[in-house]
Write a protein that binds this DNA or RNA. Structure first.
Lengths: 121, 121
DNA sequence: TGCAAGCCTGCGAAGATATGCAGATAATGG
DNA sequence: CCATTATCTGCATATCTTCGCAGGCTTGCA
């Protein structure tokens, strides 16, 4: 049983799970703490249905924990370090784009690295 | 222009690019140095055509560098640190699987972390 | 020059993903 | 109870990915 094949499949599933612009932004949105579905949707200007569907996927893979309070469902990262690990990936994104499109990446790194809450997405 | 949207798209593209079992194994295979297409295919027991197609994708995003010597094309990671960053992701793969399926993940981490060359894939 | 080895690309079928919409469930406040 | 708010799920369509196969290009060598 080639364990490397099994693990590479699991790893690929995990990477596919987070390899979506909305889900990446959602993960970074939860970086500093929990937030409910409507709050996430509003912060990212996405339809709540879509956010809920993405959350279902993250939930299925145990990437987020859910807490219900009244009719609101609050989500948080089950492993907060995930957000930092993702930001680390920015160093690998195509260098051509970085040079061509200016400092989008650096500014996003700054936004996603900042400790304080802000509203610019 | 919300730079966060732009970056999350680029980041998602990058993650999608590596989110494939074959490509993950190829990246780890190149961890310790360059290898030609046939060598990679043999090491991973994959058809050479498939390896070539995967390499074309990695090449298009500048994740690998190519060196031609005679009829052989040797590839290497353009950013060797990428392999280590990927191994770091193992900490995030679903904990249920880790508990249920034994230590596949730990054994793969050991294999992929080892400094010496070996032939067990 | 001709043939084989090593790679690459184009193409099409099969499979996987994304996403809006409609409908369902659950909690809250009259 | 009934309406409303917040969220979830099922479904159909559109879109993207994967992967084998056929064919093409280049280099090495007889």
């Amino acid at each position: 049983m080639p364990s490397r094949m099994i693990v590479s499949r699991e790893l690929a599933d995990f990477l596919k799970l987070i390899a979506h612009p909305d889900r990446l932004r959602m993960i970074e949105e939860l970086r500093l703490g929990e937030k409910d579905v409507t709050g996430i949707a509003a912060a990212l200007s996405l339809p709540a249905t879509r956010v809920s569907q993405h959350l279902a996927q993250l939930r299925a893979h145990r990437l987020v924990d859910e807490r219900r309070a009244g009719r609101n469902h609050f989500y948080r990262l089950s492993q907060p370090h995930l957000a930092a690990w993702i930001v680390d990936a920015l160093q690998f994104v195509d260098v051509r784009n970085r040079l061509a499109e200016g400092d989008h990446i650096d500014s996003a790194r700054a936004l996603w690295t900042a400790q304080s809450r802000n509203t610019s997405h």
